[in-house]
Structures are given as C-alpha cells and as structure tokens.
Design a binder for these strands. Structure first.
Length: 661
RNA sequence: GCCGCGGUAGCUCAGUGGUAGAGCGCGUCAUUGGUAAUGACGAGGUCGAGAGUUCAAUUCUCUCUCGUGGCACCA
C-alpha cells in the first residue's frame, strides 16, 4: 500500500546506518526489512534507550536496536514473560481463586506474589511447573492492548483481582495501561512490558521455592505467597546455574564452621555464638589486627558497661526508639524460693543490656571539661552488644543477638567532619583490601522523613559525606530517606556465597546524641559547643565479618588467619620422635601448629587436614625426613610436594604467617 | 514477628500405626604406610517437648520450641 503523503521517520541502527520508514512502523517490520532471519530471532526492540514490544508503533526519528534472546536484556525479558505470562496463567488455571499481585524479574530469575486461599507448599510447584510446560507447548502469540484507567480497573474487578486494581488505582497515568493476552485464552495481565512475541521463545525454567512476602513490602498488609523460579535459554545454562548454586551452598559459613570446628549454636542461647578455640583464634587475629590499625590511626581504646540503668537509655533516646530490640533486666533481687515466682513483686526498676556503645562513650567524653584543642577524640571499643532481634531474622553468624562491634566514636568539631570522614574511608578501604574485599557496594543514606536537626545541618552533613567519597574516587549510590534519624550514614555492603547482601561497616554522622546527653567542649571563643559524633565500624561486627570471611575464602583462610597454620603428620610411627621435635620448633617460632602422630595412613591424614580441616600447610614426616632433618611440604589445594631442610622451612613459614599489617 | 518446610546416633540422612537403620565419626584390634578415606569387630538413639486420637504413636492431629528459605526489621 503506497501512501504518498505519509510522514517519514528516520531510524538509526546501532552501527550508525540510517533508514527511512513510514511513521508508525513497528519494530518487527523494521527487523523484517533488514532480514527475515533477524525478525525471527527478535524478541523486543530498544527505541531511544527504552525497551519496547515488537508490535509497538514507532512514530518519530529514533535510535533503534533489536533485542534478541542471546543478550542479558533478552534473557530478562524472557524471564519476565515466564513469570507474568506462564506462571501467572498456570496459577490461575490451577487455582481460579488465586489473586495475582506482582511478578518481577530478579537476578537469575523471577518471582510472582499470589494470594492463595489454601497455603501453597513446595510440593505444589511440580504441578504448576507442569501446567506451565503445557502452556508453553501451545506457542501462543502474546498480544497487547492499550486501555484507559477505568477500563483496566473494570477488567480486573470483573476478574476478582484486587491487587491489580490497587496497582492501577495508584498509577499516575490515566491512559495507556498495557494488557497482555495469550493467543485466544481469556488470560490478561497488566504489565509494563515488553514481552516475548510468543511463548515459543521461552527457554527452560524451573520453580525453586515458595516463601511469604507482604503485599507492597509492608508488614501491616496481607502476607502473600511468593513463588520463586529461574529461567534460562537452554538446559545447559540451567544446569550450570543449579551447579553453581550447589557449589555456593558448600561455602555456607555454618556448614564450614561446623566442619572446621570453629563455632556452634544451640537452642539455649539462640542467636549467640559458642566460639570454639579454632574460631576464636580467627577472632583474636582480627582483633589484634584491627587494634594495630586503629591505634596507628590515632584512636584510643576503652571498655564500657554491659548493663546500664533505664534512665541512661531514656536520656539517649534508645528507650523510646530502640526498646523493642533491647534486653531489659529488672533491677531487683530475684526470689529465692525454689517453687515461687522469679520476682516476689512486679519489678519497677529496670536496666538494659547495651544494644550500642555510643551512650557510654559519651559518658567518658563528658568526664572533665574538653577543649576544642582536644578534638578530634577517636574513641574505640570492641563493644559487645545485645540486640533482641526477631526470631526470623537470625541467620548463623550473619545475624546474631550478641555481637561484638569494632566500634568507635569520633568526637569532633563540625569543621572537622570532612577530614575525619575521609580519614575513616581511607582506613576502611586499606583494611578491606587486606582481606581481598574489593567488590564493595557503598550507599550514602540520606535524611529520613522523621528526623532531628534542621535542614541546613543536614545539607552540610550530606554534602560533606558525598564529597569525601567523590574526592577519594569511590563510587556510591544514594539511599534516599534511609539515613538514621540523627544523621546521614554510609553503608558498606558485601555479598555472601549465595548472593545475599550484608551491611558490614558503617559511618554515621550524629548531631543529636551529644545534644541529648549534653556533651560539650569549650571552643576558641570560650563558649560551650556541641561536638559532632561520628559512629563508625570497619568490620561491623566480628561475627558477621568472620561469617563473610569464611564464605569468601570457602574456609581456606590465608596463613595469618588460619586457626591451624601447619599440621605435622607422620607417615610411620618410627618418625614420631622427630615429628614431635618439628612440632615443638614450629610452636617456638610462633606458628599455630598441630601434631598428628595417630596410627593412620598418610592419605587419610592429608585428606582430613586438607579437605576437612583446610589447614594451609602440611608437613609430612617419614623415615627419610627424620634421617635428613627435613620436612616434606604440601600446600592446601596443591598436589605438589617439596622437601626442605627443617630450619629454613620454618623460618620461611614464620615470615609467611605474618599479618598484612 | 509473618508465610512455607523441617527436627530420627556426635555428623549427614533413610524409614515405619506394632518402641529403629545406613554411611561417616567414635572405641578396640590388626596393619607401619610416602601425599585428598587401610581392614575387621564393637559401643552408641525416651525418634525436639507436651497434649490428644488409638489396644498400641517415632509415625496421625493440635500446641509449644528450635532450625531453615523468604518477607518485614537490621551490623
């Protein structure tokens, strides 16, 4: 059909070539005009940087590219179609009463939140998956229509989908709601798109697990059932992903911690760690290391009370804002009658285990008058804190109820904020580099809605914190509204073995606590001024940091941290005496050694100390070594052996065991 | 705290309405060996706790508890 006066538009392809089309041309038509095979492989297009469906008309001059399944974007679109079209429709087919909420893609997969009448268990997933396969086999084309707000709401109300109605109601737009359909089924889904042009482009998928999730992420709302799944282009990719998951599980710090005899938990102390000798060795190494670091950076170290009176926590604001996370202890003598109540009368006076160290540090600051010349004061504490975390939040070493922070508070003048924050970041990065943690996510959390302090102070604080990162060339993202009520903060995040992100270190400006607890210094002008407090931690907590270390190293600690650095294992009983000498010499050289003269074969010993114990160095001692005063050295992860003379081997090993700082 | 799943030997797990099994570990004995599991024998369990149904419960039901995957909350 030739239309003389139809408007022409210019389409610019990724290679810079331009082509002219009639306005309103679709992505599919452009693809077809380039090559039939390309059109067949296309699943969506990108117009001026925005993902669009193949069937969307293009009405103006545009940058244009085609999205195929082989790209990351293509894979994500496919996953989106799997959840929003296949999973949603399969669920509706099997459970007509189910109410659909949202179904986005996530890293490696997707989920869909659904309200079911009856609880859904993981056993039901096979059935749903089967239905999805059946639907995929239809190769149904996916079409869409644009609808007004009123029509869209009417359509979902008719279908009994209150969550979809809610989504539409909350939308700003009045028109252009996209409803997708599959072939001639009566399934519809509200979606931003784009989607695959048809189900035949769907690759392989697998439903993984079910979990609860609150509607709109709000615990006041109904809890929906979230179905998690994964989708890939082909079986090989899926298999690789599942293998990778299995491998990641092997790095789980809880599993490795038990195997390596590092720590344990038991129900009588839920959320609190029983550190075994080997685990506590790691802790001590970390503590000594960080103490050297901060001492050299001008910190002083203090130790403050575990229990303080309710009045202190009222003054600090914790009683009001943090109490549900605190362990509160009645300050009365318990009843001693064996069968009587714990307390003879209702306790009226309370104390609380500290959930944070800051109020106590302010008390130390307040002892004696401070001059502006005294500032900054960098006050550190390996502070043991208790927080009454929700049961469901506890997770191995990553989330505990008793934790020890490598905490410190810098008391400084406002004009010192920038230099102190910069100084901290530099220290922080030097430390993380020593542990090989280079892939940090940094967030700058800014003022929340409910906050103390005026806007000018917040402006200055947030700007100083952003400037510190910028001048040091550190990339970060803003977390708007996520700051503490008393000031903005940095959050430093790391990922564990299976990709969960954990906040490690932090750095928080605080204008409120010095005020509340009436801390002041005498300024140059002779008047009293409020110091600014910077709350900061590098590891965050020893517990979480060790958890991350275990997963990051898969238990294979570098020599300086390894609980046992060297095992001396005999090959034959005749070498016992010499092996004992070797062991004694290692100990004398300050090396954490273990002597294994059990009546076992060397194969067995090697396996136990390597695969299970993850000891970095093993000295195998047989008759030859005893004869020649040597050791046969085997390194963890290597089949190679080298024979060296005893003294030089120990000397070299001792050097290697030195901490990086 | 909320939703789902789970708790059986020191550990990892199988199993059954008629009071239990494997592998590893542990102990004993034999073996004295050369680099990621030597062999034989043996000991070891109120089947998370409480209540209910039943002639009989580790097994079925309920409550609690702890763990676990998420959600919410957070270092």
């Amino acid at each position: 059909m030739i239309q003389e006066n139809v408007e022409k538009i210019t389409i610019t392809l990724p290679d810079g070539a331009t082509r002219e089309y009639a306005a309103g041309v679709t992505g599919l038509e452009i693809a077809e005009s380039i090559a039939k095979s390309l059109a067949k492989a296309s699943i969506a297009v990108k117009v001026n940087g925005e993902q669009r469906d193949l069937c969307d008309p293009i009405t103006q001059d545009s940058q244009f590219s085609i999205i195929k399944l082989d790209s990351d974007e293509g894979l994500e679109i496919m996953r989106h179609t799997v959840t929003a079209q296949l999973l949603a429709r399969a669920v509706k087919n099997l459970y007509p009463d189910a109410k659909l909420a949202i179904g986005p893609t996530i890293e490696n997969g997707f989920y869909y939140d659904v309200e079911f009448k009856e609880p859904l268990s993981e056993d039901d997933l096979a059935k749903i998956e089967k239905e999805m396969r059946k639907l995929k086999e239809t190769n149904a084309p996916i079409n869409k229509s644009l609808n007004s707000k009123a029509d869209t709401i009417a359509a979902f109300e008719k279908r009994g989908e209150p969550y979809k109605v809610d989504i539409v109601n909350r939308a700003d737009q009045e028109d252009g709601f996209q409803l997708y359909t599959q072939g001639d089924s009566d399934f519809i889904d509200l979606c931003r798109g784009p989607h695959l042009p048809s189900l035949k482009h769907v690759g392989v998928f697998k439903l993984m697990k079910v979990a609860g999730a609150y509607w709109r992420g709000d615990s006041n709302n109904a809890m929906l059932t979230r179905i998690y799944g994964t989708a890939w282009r082909n079986d090989k990719e899926l298999k690789e992903y599942l293998t990778q998951l299995k491998e990641a599980e092997k790095r789980d710090h809880r599993k490795i911690g038990a195997e390596m005899d590092l720590f344990h938990f038991q129900s009588e102390a839920q959320g609190s760690v029983f550190w075994h000798a080997k685990g506590y060795t790691i802790w001590q190494q970390l503590e000594q290391y960080i103490r050297r670091r901060i001492t050299d950076d001008g910190y002083v170290e203090v130790k403050t009370p575990q229990l303080m009176d309710q009045k202190m926590w009222e003054a600090s604001g914790h009683w009001g804002k943090f109490r549900e996370n605190m362990f509160v202890v009645p300050d009365v003598v318990p009843n001693t009658d064996e069968d009587g109540p714990v307390f003879k009368e209702e306790p009226k006076e309370f104390m609380a285990l500290k959930p944070m160290n800051c109020p106590a540090h302010v008390q130390i600051f307040k002892q004696g008058l401070k001059s502006y010349r005294d500032l900054p004061i960098r006050m550190a504490e390996m502070g043991c804190c208790h927080r009454n975390e929700a049961h469901g939040a506890l997770h191995g070493l990553m989330r505990v109820r008793q934790m020890t922070q490598d905490d410190a508070h810098v008391f400084c003048r406002e004009d010192q904020i920038l230099s102190e924050v910069k100084r901290f970041i530099e220290l922080f990065y030097a430390v993380y580099k020593d542990f090989g943690f280079t892939d940090l996510k940094v967030l700058l959390a800014t003022r929340p809605e409910l906050r103390a302090g005026n806007d000018e102070t917040w402006d200055r604080a947030e700007n100083a914190m952003a400037e510190a990162l910028n001048t040091l060339g550190i990339e970060f993202e803003y977390a708007p509204g996520e700051g503490a009520f008393y000031g903005p903060k940095y959050e430093f995040h790391l990922r564990d073995a299976i990709g969960r992100s954990w906040q490690m270190g932090t750095c928080q400006l605080d204008f409120v606590l010095p005020e509340r607890l009436d801390a002041s210094y005498i300024g140059e002008d002779g008047d009293k001024h409020r110091p600014v407090m910077i709350h900061r931690a590098i590891f965050g907590t020893f517990e979480r940091f060790i958890g991350l270390l275990i997963e990051s190293f898969a238990g294979r600690f570098p020599l300086w941290l390894a609980p046992v650095q060297c095992v001396v294992a005999t090959i034959t009983g005749s070498a016992d005496e010499y092996a004992t000498q070797v062991y004694e010499k290692l100990r004398a050289a300050g090396i954490r050694a273990h002597l294994d003269i059990r009546n076992e074969k060397i194969n067995y010993k090697v396996r136990e100390h390597s695969a299970v114990g993850k000891v970095p160095v093993l000295y195998a001692i047989g008759a030859r070594e005893a004869e020649e005063q040597t050791v046969a050295i085997r390194r963890l992860g290597s089949q190679a052996q080298s024979v060296e003379s005893l003294d030089s081997a120990i000397e070299a090993l001792a050097k290697e065991c030195k901490a990086p700082y």
